[in-house]
């Protein structure tokens, strides 16, 4: 019996989270969002440089929660997991490379005559 056959079972019958679970997750997501906004207003976070990493971790947490539970990637056929994660990782790699390549340019128009 393969994973595929497992997923072939009628939709809705297999182990999706219950409605209570969905609501719990929504509460967690709300809390994370509230934390994100709250730390934005803490000066210490800005000054210590902890804000950006914290925001990254929190939003990655939200991201994974939504795709894992609401989009059922955690429970659904692994095929979907592979498809999406591969695309996500690929896109991230390309985005990262693009930013690295393009943020690093010198804009020095040279002395004189540039607009001539």
């Amino acid at each position: 019996m393969t994973h595929g056959a497992l997923a072939a079972a009628d939709h809705g019958e297999h182990e999706h989270p219950s409605e209570q679970k969905y609501i719990k997750i929504a509460i967690i997501l709300t809390i994370i969002t509230a934390i994100e906004v709250a730390i934005y207003y803490i000066d210490w976070m800005h000054d210590s440089g902890a804000l950006v990493p914290a925001l990254f971790i929190l939003s990655i947490g939200k991201f994974l929660t939504v795709i894992g539970y609401y989009m059922h990637l955690k429970f659904d056929s692994p095929l979907f997991r592979y498809m999406f994660i591969a695309a996500l990782v690929g896109s991230l790699a390309v985005i990262g490379a693009l930013i690295a390549l393009l943020r690093v340019h010198t804009i020095d128009f040279g002395p004189g005559g540039f607009i001539s």
Binding site: M83, A86, A87, S91, L92, V94, I99, R103
Partner: peptide, 16 residues
């Protein structure tokens, strides 16, 4: 998956 790449390109543009 494909839309990841689409928004990825726009987000890359924004970040650049």
């Amino acid at each position: 998956a494909s839309d990841c790449m689409f928004f990825g390109s726009l987000i890359a543009m924004y970040m650049i």
